[in-house]
Design a binder for these strands. Structure first.
Lengths: 135, 135
DNA sequence: CCGTATCCCCCCAGATACTG
DNA sequence: CAGTATCTGGGGGGATACGG
């Protein structure tokens, strides 16, 4: 499989080029955002950043996640080629999950967003208070 | 408050530091992701990148959005200080929306994610096919 | 230990109709 | 033109119990 076609740099107005209905790029971004923007995916990916983690450790480190959602999230990530699953035939059973190369590429934009969130949280909270008081 | 220089010092394991349960940073990121990661927010923000846009133009440029969802999305963004609303007492009525400085800071990480999505879409599609065939 | 199966609730998006 | 009001269905996701 060839690497991503260099195609083009993004136009000056990048989000516009991305989201415009003229290309189907908007659809692609939307679909991926639906995948990754759900309640648990980014959290789980973040927990896998340092290397292989077992199922139980993952569940412990993602507070509040149910077995059901952890399993669903991991399955989806595995299907998308972002996570590799390795099970060891031991007693007690052990299953480890780790990010693939593709999965690792998610970390950079995710961190970018996380950084934005942390930097902006204060300003957003202020804006909300101001808005709520006024109205 | 000028622009936000990349003044930051995240730990080596960034997502870990962000998402770990030990800090409430994970909660912050999760909350913001819930705000921004919904079905329409990023699309609307993308449409506002170039400057003020009227309500009707916005509705036309975001294909498939309902009046209800457009209004809700704009209200939420306004409350969060990301969008400024200006209404003109004319006939016919005119209301324009534009990004605030805070709102503009969202574009950079959003574009980062969008770029990732476009670059990764192919690999993910391949991974899915491989996964579905095998199993 | 590592999941799967089932039930169920709640929220949110869509459709529609109506106002200033 | 720029919204609001109300109803409704579908699905995400939690709790729980069970299987390998």
């Amino acid at each position: 499989m060839g690497d991503a076609p260099p195609q083009n740099s993004m136009p000056a107005s990048e989000m516009d080029g991305i989201c415009s209905g003229s290309h189907d790029a908007g659809t692609i971004v939307r679909d991926l955002l639906d995948q990754v923007g759900d309640k648990w995916t980014l959290l789980v990916v973040g927990m896998l950043e340092d290397g292989p983690v077992r199922y139980s450790a993952l569940k412990a480190r993602v507070p509040g996640i149910s077995q059901r959602m952890l399993t669903l999230t991991l399955k989806k990530l595995e299907r998308d080629g972002m996570v590799r699953r390795e099970s060891f035939a031991e007693i007690p059973p052990r299953v480890e999950y780790e990010l693939t190369e593709l999965g690792r590429t998610l970390i950079e934009p995710a961190v970018g967003f996380a950084r934005w969130a942390l930097e902006s949280a204060g300003a957003i909270a202020e804006a909300r208070e101001a808005y709520d008081i006024r109205d």
